[in-house]
Design a protein around this nucleic acid. Structure first.
Length: 506
RNA sequence: GGGCCGUUAACUCAGCUGGUAGAGUAUCUGCCUUUUAAGCAGAGAGUCGCGCGUUCGAGCCGCGCACGGCCCA
């Protein structure tokens, strides 16, 4: 016997009483004509002398969030999608029957109200109810109004309660939605075409990551949830869509953390006849205007750091950053053994996932790992790091002036990797060699190395115009724009382990 | 994978050196026609995450497990 449920039992009893009186607990015939925001706008704009306009015929509905009862009257607060409003219920106005029903209602119930606006003694605009009706009965009680819902586990598992109780959480997700809308509008205005490519792919490509695997019964084949849309988007560039983007989910089968969720949202876009330098300019403009339109300013605060997206963003070659920010003697940067010795002398372990086989991994991987530890956290103001080694950039075009490097950049803000972009490799023979190297790495035990994708090579052989492409992590961007320390704060339903009580699905 | 912290009423939290569990809000009953976390009077509500152990006795100590948070990898 779970006592949760004392309150629930009491409510169910009430519910039965109401049913016996032929009251519909879940009607669907209440017609709403205004939102709270509409009403407040109307009343404030014609405001001045109106202290009582009870004749007004506003019809609203919402969830009751608070009730102050006074015998034959009551003040309530209710909320719809646009905001919260106080209403005043008087027995002598709504009638005995409706008032009796109202007395049976609870916080959390949905109500419909008709009435006009007046100002209370304390000057608050309040809806004076002429009619009040039950629109939906709540059986479970809401969390306490003052402290709200704080337990992070409950907030994530029961996000609907989090959204009901915590207005700042609602605001975060509204902002997230606006960020996405801003980016979409920005690209559409510049003649990019929004497309959708397969999320289930026979060969997962476009990133170094472990995929989720699934099986298609009718086709009798394994499929993988995409780790990136990249190779399909470039097929579209080959097909003549010179400017394309996709803004949707990708999936990576790795641990969860404050920065990782197994499914995450990424923007990828490709532009023919552009270079990685063009994309840096474009990204800067796009994110700057998104910041201004979403947060109201190009200067945002993230975890105590003031981040200025308004000034020109710094651009720095990777090897320079290793030296100047990471404090690594440039003489070490072309010798993997020296770098390994340096790492161990600094107590930096290179044995984990990102660099899983330190003895076998090639120079570029070791540099990348050291960069993650020594440089990335220090890149607080927006910074483009450029010139990544070829061996960790298997889809990027080699630099004309240094074939060991690529025309590639990554963008860092607040110590987070936000974007990765490059001039695309469009030489099919070079691409094939890169894939072969990746295949060799995979056979040597690197589970995240790329698969050979013969079909993509074939596509390249038809000719892809010179192009540049980029991916932007939308969740991380949302974190920064909403000052959220964890990715779970910007994903409505973050993945968690199952609760014991969950039904097991095999 | 490792470390630290957490899990007590519907919610937010107390609970000392081990002695059979407490507050506020919410709920229920009564009073109340302008409240702002309304007020007054009264009442009910707990498998102290789960299991094992130590002990005369465990919310508290030990071991294991589950879930969560943060940090590290």
């Amino acid at each position: 016997m779970n006592k949760t449920n004392d309150i629930v039992e009491q409510r169910r009893k009430k519910l039965e009483d109401l049913k016996r009186k032929n009251i519909n607990l879940f009607p669907n015939d209440f017609i709403v004509t205004s939102t709270v925001k509409d009403v407040v706008n109307i009343i404030e704009n014609r405001a001045d002398s109106i202290t009582e306009s009870a004749s007004g015929g506003f019809v609203l509905a919402g969830r009751m969030m608070a009730i102050n009862r006074f015998g034959k009257t009551a003040f309530i607060r209710f909320r719809d999608r646009s905001g919260q409003l106080q209403a005043y219920i008087r027995k002598d106005r709504v009638g005995d029957e409706a008032f009796y029903l109202f007395k049976q209602l609870d916080i959390g119930d949905f109500i419909g109200i008709k009435g006009g606006m007046f100002k209370t003694k304390t000057g608050e605009w309040t809806l004076l109810a002429n009619e009040i009706k039950l629109v939906c009965k709540a059986i479970r009680p809401l969390p306490e109004k003052f402290h709200g819902l704080k337990d992070p586990e409950k907030r994530y598992r029961q996000r609907y309660l989090d959204l009901i109780m915590n207005s700042n959480v609602r605001e975060i997700f509204v902002k997230r939605s606006k960020i996405i809308q801003e980016i979409r509008t920005f690209l559409l205005k510049r003649d990019f075409l929004e497309v959708e490519t397969p999320m289930m792919q026979p060969i997962p490509g476009g990133a170094e990551a472990t995929p989720f695997k699934t099986y298609h019964n009718a086709l009798g084949m394994n499929l993988f949830l995409r780790i990136a849309p990249e190779l399909y988007l470039k097929r579209l560039v080959i097909g003549g869509f010179e400017k394309v983007f996709e803004l949707n989910r990708s999936f990576r089968n790795e641990g969860v953390s404050t920065r990782h969720n197994p499914e995450f949202t990424m923007l990828e876009f490709y532009q023919a006849y552009a270079t990685y330098n063009d994309l840096m300019d474009l990204t800067e403009e796009m994110l700057r205007s998104a910041a201004i339109n979403v947060t109201g300013s190009a200067v945002i605060t993230y975890q105590g750091n003031s981040i200025d997206l308004g000034r020109k963003w710094r651009r720095m070659p990777l090897l320079t950053a290793m030296e100047e920010i990471g404090g690594i003697d440039p003489g070490l940067l072309d010798d993997r053994q020296k770098l390994l010795d340096f790492a161990s002398s600094k107590g930096i372990p290179l044995t984990q996932k990102i660099c899983q086989r330190p003895l076998a991994d090639r120079l570029g991987k070791i540099i990348a790992k050291l960069f993650d530890i020594l440089v990335e956290p220090k890149l607080i103001q927006p910074t483009y790091i450029t010139g990544y080694p070829v061996e960790i950039s298997p889809l990027s075009r080699k630099s004309d002036n240094d074939p060991t490097l690529t025309d590639r950049f990554e963008l860092f803000i607040a110590g987070h990797e936000i974007a990765n972009g490059f001039s695309e490799l469009n030489d099919p023979d070079d691409q094939k060699e890169r894939f072969l190297q990746q295949t060799a790495d995979r056979e040597a035990g690197d589970e995240e190395a790329h698969y050979m994708d013969e079909d993509y090579i074939k596509a390249l052989e038809y000719g892809m115009p010179p192009a540049a492409g980029e991916g932007i992590g939308i969740d991380r961007l949302a974190m920064i724009f909403t000052d959220s320390a964890s990715i779970r704060e910007v994903i409505l339903f973050p993945h968690m382990k199952r609760e014991k009580t969950d039904t097991t699905i095999i």
